[in-house]
Design a protein around this nucleic acid. Structure first.
Lengths: 236, 236
DNA sequence: CAGTGGTCTAGACCACAAG
DNA sequence: TTGTGGTCTAGACCACTGG
């Protein structure tokens, strides 16, 4: 009955781990040309696609630079990337075990400041919806939101009951942006921020500034201000 | 000679784009179960692996939730992820066309504060290298760095000429972390910050707080303080 | 021009989890 | 139990680009 023991197939994870180890250990130093897919497939006794899958993963993660004909090299500055999750605020609040509520403070049609109109590529004089919303966690200020919405891009928003569902949430559920610009920064609390968040004017606030597009039409510009102590975290 | 015109093979990008379009257009609403790989392969007249590749990409990007047996669903909160690039400071400065220089202000062995020692899992009384560095762009303060380095994890650092190459750069080139925690926040400038960055005490600073590990050994803890006006940006 | 990565195929087996 | 995604294979052709 001596049946031939079949070799368990090498998984791409195996190759991935091995390659990562060689990079970390210095066996493949930064900038180094590593063996071709064919060579590695031979070394690991597997199909070339398996190697390809492993190396593609590493390349996606920023560990490798791959170019046809030129081959694959270890990135000179391996991986310095972080995946930030930009949550819907309700989730952000509920994830930390607090109850969410929002309060619509201001809602009106307004001509945006020139800088913003320019950034959004609007004609001068175009009006947008302007909203000021306070997001609350267990009744305490979580973040203050200032938002401009382009009704031409999102006409449906006009019928949304924004006092019941926050614009944040409504947009997430109803509109898919195709592109977005995000900036993170620190700013001193304005008088308005201070009032909304119940902090002293000038306090260091963490700001998330976001502008989203659908095709080449701007949808919405948001400024989220978080009170001192807020940390946006991730894992590398 | 009427030769059979061969169908050009469907690429995974085609399927990817089609699926994305169905999600964006609402044909596949959030939470909806989408057709199986086999069905889609038939629809697009391609191999199942081609569909798999396309859907995996979408899942990686957060647009889909895939589970064996349960099938593939459109994510209820599609994609709210941002890739942040954590640059080496020199690159960050040189990318904006400025010349980089750094100045080592403090270098000593010191017992870290309890909070930090705990976070790093160190025994009480363990000493670390403590560094204060000012990063300059065209001679003007770009960021103030406060860093603790665990020499046990990185003995090589003891021989590094830290006045010539910044610890940031040396570590990037010589040590590969396996894990890192990153936090972004806002803080008022301390007296030290203010002196280094030439801003008023209490100014709103953008802070990057990072702790990296190699296996279960902490390597280094860094606090980077950026003066008012600094924006960390990315695209969604 | 030729070497290397990128992708497609058709079929197969496996792992997981819903029912 | 069984449907669905996850993966491997062996071979093939193509696309890009360095030399």
């Amino acid at each position: 009955m001596a049946e031939a023991s079949v070799q368990a197939p090498t998984t791409w994870q195996t190759v991935h781990a091995a390659a990562l180890d060689r990079i970390r250990s210095g066996a493949w130093p930064p900038g180094e040309l590593i063996p071709t897919e064919v060579d590695l497939a031979q070394e690991f006794s597997c199909a070339r696609m398996t190697v390809s899958r492993a190396l593609r993963q590493l390349a996606d993660d920023g560990m490798l630079d791959r170019r046809r004909k030129a081959g694959t090299r270890v990135a000179t500055t391996p991986v310095r990337r972080a995946m930030l999750t930009i949550p819907v605020i309700r989730q952000e609040v509920e994830t930390k075990g607090a109850s969410y509520r929002h309060s619509l403070i201001t809602q009106e049609h307004r001509i945006p400041p020139n800088a913003l109109a320019a950034r959004m590529g609007l004609a001068p004089g175009d009006r947008l919806i302007y909203l000021e919303t306070l997001h609350l966690a267990d009744g305490r200020p979580h973040a203050a939101e200032t938002r401009w919405i382009n009704t031409q891009a999102v006409p449906g928003i006009l019928k949304a009951p924004l006092d019941q569902i926050s614009a944040n949430e409504w947009l997430v559920q109803n509109v898919f942006y195709t592109r977005g610009d995000l900036a993170l920064l620190a700013e001193p609390a304005t008088k308005t921020d201070a009032a909304h968040l119940d902090v002293r004017e000038g306090s260091a606030l963490f700001i998330v500034d976001r502008l989203t597009w659908i095709g080449d039409q701007p949808i919405t510009a948001v400024r989220l201000a978080y009170p001192p102590g807020h940390r946006m975290t991730t894992t590398l």
